[in-house]
Design a protein around this nucleic acid. Structure first.
Lengths: 308, 308
DNA sequence: TCTCTTTTGCTCAATCTGAGTATATCAGAC
DNA sequence: GTCTGATATACTCAGATTGAGCAAAAGAGA
């Protein structure tokens, strides 16, 4: 028993938000891929150190906040069938935009991989033109009447159809359903239209990116992780744009700012940014003390009420 | 490069709640250990299947709900220094009590490993007798005044001292602090008194168990995972006792039941359990439909308000 | 000075939460 | 039979939180 060599890979979803667009580092190629390293059992004392080292060497980026996402171990992943590839996926957040050298690493628009996840300008048009028809067709193919109803219901819940509300966090479940029905494919199959089906990534990298997006959308609620993506000082509107970029929905500015200062998450600097095009906006900074004061400090998103 | 053999281990924290006590499967020994298997790269198609197979073979238990916890890869884990052991830890919930055969697997009281986590009868007495003194001593040893203040503050926040409230979810952070100050030790060092310091587990298994407890306490809030631990029908008081057992705090019965039926999580069966010692309690069952209706159906715990 | 834009302050109703009071329905003691 | 004790369940109420909108402040430019 226990034949077969094992190799441990480390995949990183490295996130930044620039110009109101969430971006992740990808390695150019056809299809593109996430930055991936391999654990050197002799060299790296911990997995996270291995990741940081590898990303620094490969892309020149020094990671700040890092969090483990998931470990994938299915047999037919990877390219070499002789070795069993176990991959530990990580989510990393970096401040500002750190342009990469000539390493092949480029920032790619996150929503380019998941066009259906960006509801900031209302329901994306791909819903009407492609997603809903595809879901309907799949539902109609159910074996029994009960099966068809179940399929329809699953579609409606996950994609916010027919009165169901859009749950920003269920990114992975939606991706998996779309994969199940053949709307997206993981292997580098050339897909019809990236603007509709999303851009492809190598292997199961798009699935990992989906999980990362869901994770960050959830975490933003109860931990102040957004600030990892912000410069030291920022306007509240700027912060709001970043939260909106990640969550993919618009939020009510007045309530957002009420939440922030009632929660003690930010403090004024007394300095103003006059370049708003309207009234100048005061610059704020993150109050680190909140970590010690409050149990679950986050920037609330709408929609996820206990009942609803 | 890449010398050194890699092995992938799978650890399972298998949870059940019986008689109002949360229990986990441990393998008898000195110290006891979590059930651990090794991935057979040739045999097991996925990690989760490997885990299910291994647990079934080793303990006779068929796992129901399974969720990945974390992957540990530090170098000096494991016993054999020649192989780099990567361990993927899983949390599993099983209905009812499934007594194990003569496999050496026994149910162990979860709070036996973390006596300070059970606040159902008020603050555990170990706080006054051992934990607070230990934390104070550690704080007093800080290098500078600022360092001492920071240590004190960290203690107070994590352990709910001096006006801070007890946050049931931060199990792992508390465990790590206690480990840092030498109150608990991971290696099988014979500890003074298990009733005070908690019972030991092999390697880093106690840390994994702590993470599992924190995870389930958090998840209970927004996903209906408790029902994985319940029989098909149950009384609301029975359900409440299980939630209390896991969360380690008492909850208000009237509000608990209001939350459940307002949230549509359960439905009446029309059958009553007369063995309560008082008014008979109606039996309920879990309403699976709630999964499709509500974004985040969970059984609310007290204490974690957005502001606090 | 007027208009447009963005930031910021404030109000109001609906809902949710924590906590308490009251009632229903059993078993067993007398 | 009635009383007592226990548990289950219903209802009430104040305070906090949330979603939504109105309105004023403060800049740029016509």
């Amino acid at each position: 028993m226990n034949s077969g060599r094992i190799e441990v890979g480390l995949d990183a979803v490295i996130v930044a938000v620039t110009d109101e667009a969430p971006r992740i580092i990808t390695l150019a190629g056809a299809p593109a891929a996430l930055p991936t390293g391999t654990l050197d059992p002799a060299l790296d004392r911990t997995l996270e150190r291995a990741l940081r080292r590898w990303v620094r060497e490969g892309t020149g980026i020094d990671l700040g906040y890092v969090e483990q996402l998931y470990t994938l171990g299915d047999r037919d992943r990877g390219t070499d069938l002789e070795v069993r590839l176990i991959t530990v996926a990580y989510l990393a957040l970096v401040k500002e935009r750190a342009p990469s050298p000539g390493s092949g690493a480029v920032w790619g628009d996150w929503y380019g991989f998941f066009p259906w996840e960006d509801w900031r300008e209302g329901r994306p048009s791909v819903f009407g033109t492609a997603i809903v028809p595809a879901l309907d067709a799949w539902a109609a193919l159910g074996a029994s009447a009960g099966d068809r109803a179940a399929r329809r219901e699953r579609s409606q819940i996950l994609f916010g159809l027919e009165g169901s509300s859009w749950d920003v966090e269920r990114v992975l479940e939606r991706y998996e359903l779309l994969w199940e029905i053949g709307f997206v494919s993981e292997a580098g199959a050339p897909e019809s239209d990236p603007a509709v089906h999303g851009a492809a990534l190598a292997l199961d990298h798009r699935r990992i990116a989906a999980q990362a997006l869901g994770r960050i959308r959830g975490k933003i609620r109860y931990r102040p992780v957004v600030f990892e993506l912000m410069p030291d000082t920022f306007t509240l509107t700027g912060l709001q744009r970043v939260v909106e970029a990640l969550s993919g929905v618009r939020i009510h500015a007045q309530n957002f700012r009420r939440l922030l200062d009632r929660g003690g998450l930010v403090e004024k600097t007394g300095i103003f940014d006059p370049t708003t095009g309207g009234r100048p906006a005061e610059l704020y900074r993150f109050r680190r003390d909140v970590l010690r004061e409050r149990p679950a400090p986050g920037v609330g998103l709408p929609g996820l009420r206990t009942s609803g």
